[in-house]
Simulated scan of single mutants.
Amino acid sequence: MGCDGGTIPKRHELVKGPRKVEKVDKNAELVAQWYYCTLSQEKLSRPIVACELGRLYNKDAVIEFLLDKASDKVLVEAASHIKSIKNVVELNLTDNPAWTGDKGNTKGDKYDDIQSARFICPVVGLEMNGRHRFCFLRNCGCVFSERALKEIKTEACNKCGTPFRNDDVIVLNGTKEDVEVLKKRMEDRRLKSKLGKKSKKLKAAETIVKSPAAEDSSSSSQRNTEKDVTNVKSGENRSIAFCKASESASSSSGKDSKNATGPSKRPIAHMEEKSEAYKSIFTSHSSAKRSKEESSNWITHTAYYF
């Protein structure tokens, strides 16, 4: 039953041996790296940013990635090192005047020239299509070809004039060796920033601790000075009071001496100076005495009987 007509064997059944690994098309890899966002796989459109490892992204895609706080968020390996928007730099790109865009092949029935790129080097004029090595400056975000940076050796940007160092030059879409070097620089840079923040916090804490101690010392010194002033004032008051007391004592002693010598002579002179009208008030005055004719013959004695 069956197998009467025979079967045709396939090639892999006849030829035994290891299969050949399919090679990745270099043109397709270059297009994916230089024309599409590494995170969202969409076409690059301004604003375009680059990370510290030299990969290109759409800024909107990076912001959406950072804002997504879901627990089931898929961590993309290409963006695992991006922790905040400060870890990417917005690129200052130069447009290619000869680039026609996607308008020439809207139907997809024409050949796309991979050599033509949207952006070029502002110094040399090379197109940023992946055939040439391009770099950007981390301080300002300006993009140049590596050839331009080697030919024109300056310490300032050729486009905006911002100063930079060799560590600030980051290669775009570099090789594995380039990525390893850039990764090491990134880790060192972040470690230095963390240490700087910690030192600033420690200094701030020290100043906060020292300020109350300084205030206490200043307040204690003020209290000591106030005490000294009060002691001086009290001493002055005591000396003034002592002087006043001595003066009053001397004055009182003088008065007492005057009173001790004066009373024996002063009343006599004072009585002599009295007028006759004043003397007539008293019964001892001669005008108050009655004569024998005015006196009564009664036996009883009155106060007027003398």
Rank of each mutant, 00 (worst) to 15 (best):
R138Q: 13
Y111K: 12
Q115H: 14
G130E: 14
R133W: 05
M128Q: 10
F134E: 01
Q115E: 15
I114T: 01
L137W: 02
C135E: 09
F134W: 07
C135D: 07
A117Q: 06
G130W: 05
I120G: 05
D109V: 12
P122L: 03
S116P: 00
F119L: 11
I114L: 10
I120K: 10
P122R: 01
R133D: 02
P122V: 01
L137F: 14
A117V: 00
I114N: 02
R118G: 02
I120M: 09
H132W: 07
N129D: 15
F136K: 09
H132C: 03
S116H: 07
G125Q: 12
R133Q: 05
N129T: 02
F119H: 14
R138V: 04
R118K: 12
R118V: 03
F136M: 08
Y111G: 06
F134D: 03
V123Q: 10
I114S: 02
Q115F: 13
P122Y: 00
L137N: 10
S116F: 05
R133M: 03
Q115T: 14
M128W: 02
G130H: 08
C135S: 12
D113H: 11
A117P: 01
A117G: 12
P122E: 04
S116R: 12
N129V: 06
Q115D: 15
H132I: 04
I114A: 01
L126K: 12
I120P: 02
I120N: 09
E127T: 03
M128E: 10
C135K: 11
D113W: 08
I114F: 00
L126H: 13
G130I: 11
F119Q: 08
S116A: 13
R118M: 14
D109L: 15
G125M: 13
E127Y: 01
L126Y: 13
E127K: 10
R131I: 00
N129Q: 09
R133A: 03
I120V: 15
D112H: 09
V124N: 05
N139Q: 14
F119A: 06
C135M: 12
R118S: 08
N139L: 14
D113T: 10
C135H: 04
R118Y: 02
R138Y: 06
H132N: 08
A117M: 08
H132D: 07
Q115M: 13
F119W: 14
V123H: 10
L126C: 11
D112P: 05
N139P: 12
Y111F: 15
C135Q: 12
M128Y: 04
A117R: 03
G125C: 13
I120A: 10
D112L: 11
G125P: 11
N139S: 10
D109Y: 12
F134K: 02
V124F: 04
V124K: 02
A117C: 07
L126F: 14
D113E: 15
R133F: 01
D109G: 09
R118D: 04
L137S: 02
A117Y: 04
V124M: 03
K110D: 11
P122M: 00
R118T: 03
S116G: 01
I114Q: 07
F134S: 07
S116L: 15
N129F: 06
L126A: 13
